[in-house]
């Protein structure tokens, strides 16, 4: 009788375990299947002032889109930004500007809030609204922006532009050359291509 009870308890625990496991893992597996990722990206910083235009390009960011949850994320290695002039690149990396040694990546984590308007299985151009958080130089701010998702065959492209107010990320030049040559607001252009 004792043996039968122990066996019954073990069987019940085993069945409950399977059930728990399937409950926990099913949504994750499903979500993972719907997640696409890429390193095929281009992020551009553009600053314009009456004195000069400054542009920097970065082709090393990674990105993901989860087509079922709408989660969107990009991770940007900050030292990969390339400037035409080496001196500008040095200034960009230094502590009083982007401080890339201590904050080597910038991150955008958000969600597509109008996911129901996007059909990832159908070719076309869709407008996506993304809300989330943008972290640059270790400072995180709320982020909301519209972007364009283009689906063509097996390729999904993302194009977006948004402004970054440097002061909101702890970057403010009160005097000196940067205060006149670097714009207070930087235009960021993001392009990414995913295998859909």
């Amino acid at each position: 009788m004792k043996f039968l009870s122990i066996t019954l308890i073990i069987v019940i625990q085993f069945l409950v375990g399977i059930n728990d496991h399937s409950l926990n893992s099913q949504p994750n597996n499903s979500a993972n299947l719907e997640e696409i990722s890429t390193t095929n990206t281009h992020i551009k910083f553009f600053s314009t002032t009456p004195i000069e235009d400054i542009e920097a390009n970065n082709y090393d960011a990674s990105g993901i889109i989860n087509k079922s949850t709408g989660r969107v994320a990009f991770s940007v290695p900050m030292q990969s930004f390339q400037f035409e002039k080496s001196l500008m690149q040095r200034h960009f990396n230094q502590g009083r500007f982007l401080d890339t040694k201590n904050h080597p990546t910038a991150q955008l984590i958000g969600e597509i809030t109008n996911l129901e308007e996007i059909d990832f299985e159908k070719d076309g151009t869709y407008t996506a609204k993304v809300s989330g958080k943008l972290t640059i130089r270790g400072v995180t701010n709320d982020f909301t922006n519209w972007g364009k998702i283009t689906i063509s065959g097996n390729t999904l492209s993302v194009d977006s532009e948004f402004n970054v107010l440097l002061e909101e990320f702890g970057i403010a030049f009160k005097r000196g050359k940067p205060s006149t040559n670097v714009a207070k607001t930087i235009l960021v252009t993001l392009k990414a291509e995913f295998d859909n």
Binding site: S37, S62, I64, A73, F74, Q79, P104, T105, L108, I109
Partner: peptide, 9 residues
């Protein structure tokens, strides 16, 4: 960039 656990990804 080195490797870090990436909260975004």
């Amino acid at each position: 960039s080195g490797i870090y656990y990436d909260e975004a990804l």
